[in-house]
Design a protein around this nucleic acid. Structure first.
Lengths: 132, 132
DNA sequence: GTCTTTAATGATATAATATACCATTAACGA
DNA sequence: TCGTTAATGGTATATTATATCATTAAAGAC
């Protein structure tokens, strides 16, 4: 028996999908605790790790703050707002060729790349405009 | 008086330059403590933050591990080895145009982007080869 | 349906990274 | 040399995450 299906694990995956916008482990924990208060934070962290290992979720490591979890498994890039911290996917094509550029330098094996854009999101731009 | 020159701050900048390959705050702390054992870890963290604010150092945020500090202030990309954790600069051209691609999606202001490559570094490739 | 095995859970302790706070020290202009 | 106050160093604390372990429960065997 390799892997058991617990409702805690199902709830963890479900929470990441429902929270949609790249929740942190604690976002997921808070979301689940609303419905199932006896869930342990450890269980949430553990299940998020398991789901990443199983390639059912992706982990996105961010600037100083906590890891975020992504149910979008296709290669894609992220934007993070430096004002509010919100992260979103960016619908621009995946640049296979830049792995080749890096591989072309030689001396190492390139496996993958991540691109993180930063700036100010639509909501925060509105707030700045309203302030003026 | 806005800013004072202390030798602790000078040692902090010097350590990042000498350690060269993107040291963490604790790498810098350990390096300085060798010569000046009474340095406080708080002072190192504080001075690293100040030097980043003064644009004399760049902060590189990495996958789960501690922040790293970079004395190379020109825009460039990084590679991190998934085996040993070593980080290095990659000498490929900076892609101004991908900010435009992202900006072209509209709805937000794009300020910058970072690219992190991962894979296996030259040293770790040798180790793998020798093992076989 | 019951038993058995053991993966998974939940609670607590702890690790790693980083900042907050504050009394003391020392940089630097007057 | 003095006075102001930025910077230091020490301690406490916050945040994120994992380790440990007794207990619970999932799922295959019967």
């Amino acid at each position: 028996m390799q892997q058991r299906n617990t409702f805690q694990k199902a709830m963890t995956l479900d929470a990441v999908i429902r929270l949609a916008n790249h929740p942190t482990a604690d976002d997921v924990y808070d979301y689940i605790r609303d419905k199932y208060p006896q869930i342990s934070r450890t269980t949430v962290y553990r299940n998020l790790n398991k789901l990443v290992d199983l390639n059912m979720l992706a982990r996105v490591k961010v600037s100083g703050s906590a890891d975020r979890f992504d149910h979008n498994l296709h290669p894609h890039y992220h934007f993070i707002c430096t004002e509010c911290g919100e992260m979103c996917d960016l619908d621009i094509p995946y640049l296979e060729q830049i792995n080749d550029m890096a591989q072309g330098l030689g001396g190492r094996k390139i496996n993958a790349h991540q691109i993180m854009f930063d700036g100010v999101c639509e909501e925060c731009l509105k707030k700045v405009t309203n302030r003026q």
